[in-house]
Design a binder for these strands. Structure first.
Length: 315
DNA sequence: TCCTCTAACACTTTTGAATCGC
DNA sequence: AGCGATTCAAAAGTGTTAGAGG
């Protein structure tokens, strides 16, 4: 069959965040990603059913902390929680459906609650992850264990998980591009204005000094994103599954800059074991057994012609 | 003392049920 | 009766902050 190509539609936005150091908020009850993953597919058989899935893999083996103006390593990574894979709600659908328009993972949520029962993707905070996309030729999420699949990831979608934003440059980027954030911000501005007004009328009241001297909402519009000169474009990507599972070990324990030289460090000592939890009644990802016991390049159910080399041709 | 996490806040956007017209 | 378009209320989602907890 033809070569399957997967591209990141909102690559420009991801790159803008990646340049600064993408932070992704995770909460106990689940938080959407921003930027969210939006992909497009080509090369599928229009009349064959596919299941499209997304999961997260650790980028490295470190835990990070925010130190004033930059991320630095804070020690060894925590053991990975039971991972969940987000199955796109349109799954399964024919290739013609997937290729008709872009595929959004807007509704995927991230959580730090290891006991989560809602099928959100469980991650540790202050760790670095990378989303992966799986294209599985299958008529049902229940049969993907026996189905040929291909896996894709993008270097610009790496992110650090946080429970509260650390880098205010990221905050500004989000406010500029996320309408919900804008709405909240404007509401907060109103509240601040009211407080300032109250202060003017109650000069003896107890107010935090910054309310008067430093309005945190100021200058937010001075930093609008300009991608025109950065030469970013939509890229088709192609990191085959075999590469994403290659074990990687640092030669020494050092303090790398978290956003440099990490594009090929998708790694873990143990293969990452996703678990399909967004499919009702689904408790064990069919891939997981294979991933535990054999290298994907040796996957028995992957036709030789569909193995890792097939998906790696970028145009 | 420092660091991480949680909940509450006000507003916008999205969603879905109800209604209307053809 | 059935279908699509429109309206509107409810729910979901957002970043900031203080305070709790380890």
């Amino acid at each position: 069959q033809g070569i399957i190509k997967l591209s990141l539609v909102n690559s420009d936005l991801w790159k803008a965040f990646h340049t600064t150091g993408t932070e992704m908020v995770i909460t106990k009850h689940g938080r959407r990603m921003f930027p969210h993953c939006n992909i497009s597919l080509s090369g599928l058989d229009p009349l064959t059913n596919y299941v499209i899935m997304m999961d997260m893999v650790p980028v490295d083996q470190f835990k990070y902390k925010w130190n004033k103006e930059e991320w630095e390593v804070a020690g060894k990574a925590e053991p990975q929680p039971p991972a969940h894979t987000y199955v796109h709600p349109d799954s399964p659908a024919m290739g013609s459906h997937w290729m008709k328009q872009s595929i959004s993972f807007l509704k995927a949520k991230l959580t730090n609650n290891t006991l989560d029962q809602h099928g959100h993707i469980i991650l540790h905070s202050m760790h670095r992850y990378s989303p992966r996309f799986h294209v599985v030729q299958a008529d049902s999420p229940y049969t993907i264990h026996w189905s040929p699949y291909q896996t894709f990831s993008f270097s610009e979608t790496h992110f650090t998980t946080v429970t509260a934003y650390q880098n205010n440059k990221i905050t500004k980027l989000k406010i500029d591009h996320n309408p919900f954030a804008k709405g909240f911000r404007e509401g907060l501005q109103g509240s601040l204005s009211a407080l300032k007004s109250a202060k003017r009328h109650c000069p003896n009241g107890h107010f935090s000094p910054w309310l008067l001297d430093q309005d945190p909402t100021e200058s937010l519009n001075n930093d609008t994103l300009d991608l025109s000169g950065q030469g970013y474009g939509c890229e088709e990507q192609m990191v085959p599954a075999s590469m994403t599972y290659q074990a990687y070990r640092f030669a020494e324990y050092k303090t790398p800059s978290p956003y440099s030289d990490i594009d090929n460090r998708l790694c873990s000592d143990e293969p990452h074991v996703p678990d399909v939890a967004t499919v009702p009644g689904y408790h064990s990802h069919p891939f997981s057994q294979d991933m535990h016991h054999q290298h994907p390049t040796a996957h028995h159910h992957m036709p030789a012609s569909r193995q890792h080399t097939a998906s790696t041709v970028a145009t």
